[in-house]
Design a protein around this nucleic acid. Structure first.
Lengths: 214, 214
DNA sequence: TTTCATTTGACTACACTGGTCAAATTGCTT
DNA sequence: AAGCAATTTGACCAGTGTAGTCAAATGAAA
């Protein structure tokens, strides 16, 4: 009946997905209540089980759905080519948090599955995760093709790149501590990116040669 | 009956505390099962309710207990005085993660209370949290008394300090992604600190003047 | 009006809940 | 050994919530 689910009215379909993703993310598979899901999706119990065979079927559908989203909306957009490493990290940070902003439930769901449910998944799905997420995290961290002559002469590019990478991670980690998961939708991303750009300028000031016109 | 609980055999007492902290941290107050707690603590149902009036009493006892621990084992040891800012951050990181290592359940419990249960607490306890944790986080972040002449001449100390701070946060955030909460006990902290010391050396190389003997 | 797809929610059988308490066990004092 | 109090046990209770079912209601299209 999943093909029928996919032909459903967009708003209703997304309501069901978002509600289910949130409940599974909040409670984990075992403690997730189908009653809460239908309540949050504003549908009746019967409707949920009309489209999905059972709780498990719904769960695995959500995983497939979420992996597609993260692939198409984030991983496939990762920039590996820009030579200016700070610019590249800027691009990738923005791509990443645009995905967070657009699909907060997907991101929240995948995080908790990855963090605390992975061992309960079928081997098949464990591999899907390993392949897609973990290798692509490495992709993102793979810092080759750095334009080294942008750095000041007394600074070693690889070491500096590592510090830049970690400090950006710290920047968002600090941010994550300020905003809780369910507040993501309320964040004012525009002013946030302005602040982030300023932070990047500071990084350039410290690590890069001063910009010179010729 | 809490005074009797505190006179209990050390091992038994800690078993109960650790089990309760873990279950509350994993599931949150509502979904935490007293059955799971007694099972994990290897005691009978009756014993738990012999020492604690009810689930709520146990929960608030755990909060008081945990706040005492984090105060005595972490917050009171925060270094505000060392002038070498990298050294100061090194000290504070080590104090912080020694507390993590020694009391993983306390840390895990307090994190989840702070992160997702705070609004359900009595106002009294909300204030306790605000006072103790949030203001002391600020304390730790308060970077005054920096010995500025350690920095290279072309680097602004305040901005550099911010980057150092964030990159250390990123360093541990990356680490936290590698190890899940329940694996904390298995981490080899000794080699980990060695790596961290190397990382700090890199920071010094980049931000500080080369060391000169006279 | 007939037909078929969709939706409902009362209903099951059952697992688990926080908490109780009479009875059993333990440890201490005589 | 006997007696007593402190401690521990786990079967038990009334209640709540569970995943899933299904006869009946509704909607839409012909």
């Amino acid at each position: 009946m999943i093909d029928k689910f996919e032909k459903l009215d967009e708003e209703k379909r997304l309501n069901i997905l978002r509600s289910a993703l949130s409940v599974f993310a909040d409670k984990g598979y075992q403690d997730a209540s189908t009653n809460k899901i239908v309540e949050g999706a504003d549908i009746s119990k019967g409707t949920l089980f009309y489209y999905f065979k059972n709780k498990e079927g719904l769960y695995y559908y959500l995983i497939d759905y979420s992996l597609e989203i993260i692939k198409n909306e984030y991983i496939n957009h990762i920039d590996h080519t820009t030579l200016d490493i700070i610019k590249r990290m800027e691009n990738n940070s923005k791509i990443k948090y645009q995905y967070f902003q657009k699909y907060p439930e997907v991101n929240y769901f995948l995080s908790t599955v990855l963090y605390s449910e992975l061992e309960h998944l079928s081997v098949n799905y464990q591999e899907k995760f390993q392949d897609l997420i973990q290798t692509s995290v490495k992709k993102m961290k793979n810092q080759q093709n750095i334009q080294e002559n942008l750095f000041k002469d007394n600074i070693k590019p690889e070491k500096a790149a590592r510090i830049i990478e970690l400090s950006i991670e710290g920047y968002f980690s600090e941010l994550a501590n300020t905003f809780k998961q369910h507040q993501v939708k309320d964040i004012d991303f525009d002013t946030l990116w302005e602040e982030f750009d300023e932070y990047l300028d500071t990084l350039r000031e410290i690590f890069y040669k001063p910009f010179e016109e010729e």
